[in-house]
Design a protein around this nucleic acid. Structure first.
Lengths: 225, 225
DNA sequence: TGAGGCGGTAACGTTTCGGTAACATGGGGG
DNA sequence: CCCCCATGTTACCGAAACGTTACCGCCTCA
């Protein structure tokens, strides 16, 4: 899935240049020509990154920046400032911008910084589930309890992963079989029970009185965040 | 090409001493006497290293440090602190400094630390992976173990490189095939196994109990930094 | 053209893990 | 209060996944 960048720029020529370059890099580009439009667009499309010119008609970039953050927009914001006046930079950063580039700038540099932010974000998104003193790192395929690694078998790991990914939801045995074991696999629903048992012995403090993996009689199991 | 160091210091005598020494060592030296000037200069010249006095007029060194990092300056920063008060050091490191030296200090020591940082940076740029007593130099295309060169075949090298570049992450056979062998290549996933085996015999102390290249059953392999 | 290094596959052995059955337990309803 | 059924637990077997060796074909270089 393409990542979305919102470009806020009133100058047509500059806008075109930016748009072309970002599209060439594989981004889905949204544009806004005024502060107002930018704020509306950001609320509506929730872009992954915002490139914001400070010099805008009506509402200037600093204010846009401020409103965006007030409105809960958490995407990284890169400011385009005409002059490298320190006050601009400081103010921009204070108002919630994450980085800035001063005109005239190399488009390469801007793209590089954009990429850096998105990469950082992707790294952050490494699926990690934490509960109690346990921690499930999907990318590294490591489960730790009390900071010590606990070995889980492949199915155990997948089951715990699926449970944790559906925290608070009751999952039937059939559903678990389908999602963890695979649709075509024909396996007794009772197998789920056994796996839950062994999982509890590895995850729970007291496997007989589980804190995390609850059994819902007649229905299935539930992971309690 | 000479490496650039930015020295931020308001005391003229000290500044001169530092400048002379760094120039003698072959650095290109830029100077700033105030925090404001330092920030502008850092943005403008993108130095490879910053030596920053904490005691500055107007904006103090901690603040400068903070703003530099906010502004995306990634060069190592060495703080010069007048007193070795622990709180200074902790605050400095929190705000993004990399090292500190307490006055009065030996110029030799400062130069040594600067050199250490720049060497580390150079290594990063040359893509050198070190683990245990092994060392993978991608640019030079040399793998050494216990300081002795070990010949790796092209594919072996590529595989180790890709594994090391994704330290701590489980890589499926499919992913490895795609990244190391190339997308179109049609090769059995089991081939990965064999390459891992041979790699382990060259890299690991005890190939039967691998320390670096871990197998994650059902998922693939993982390089453990 | 032949030898050797390299990459790829197949086949075999080992180990671990998943699956089922069988027995134990416990809780809710009659 | 007791019985029954859903779930917990244990034991064991077969199979799949992986490690390892053997072997073959290709390319390179002498």
């Amino acid at each position: 899935m393409k990542e979305t960048v919102l470009i806020v720029e009133d100058d047509a020529a500059m806008l075109r240049g930016l748009r072309d370059n970002f599209e060439l890099e594989g981004y889905l580009v949204k544009v806004a020509r005024t502060g107002k439009a930018a704020i509306e667009m950001a609320e509506a499309t929730r872009p992954d990154l915002i490139v914001l010119d400070v010099m805008l008609p009506e509402v200037n970039g600093f204010e846009v920046c401020h409103y965006l953050r007030e409105g809960g927009v958490e995407a990284p914001i890169i400011l385009l400032t005409a002059k490298s006046r320190e006050v601009d930079v400081v103010m921009g950063l204070k108002l919630g911008a994450d980085d800035y580039v001063t005109k005239p700038f190399s488009i390469r540099e801007l793209l590089a910084r954009a990429d850096a932010f998105l990469r950082r974000r992707r790294e952050k998104e490494r699926e990690i589930f934490e509960f109690g003193n346990c921690r499930l790192d999907v990318a590294a395929h490591v489960f730790t309890k009390d900071r010590a690694e606990v070995k889980l078998s492949p199915k155990q790991f997948e089951l715990l992963h699926y449970l944790a990914a559906n925290t608070g939801r009751v999952l039937t045995r059939e559903r678990l079989l389908q999602e963890v074991w695979g649709a075509d696999r024909l396996v007794t629903p009772r197998s789920v029970d056994r796996f839950v048992t062994t999982l509890r012995q590895q995850v729970e403090e007291d496997p007989h009185h589980p804190r995390w993996i609850e059994t819902v009689r007649e229905f299935g199991y539930k992971f309690t965040g």
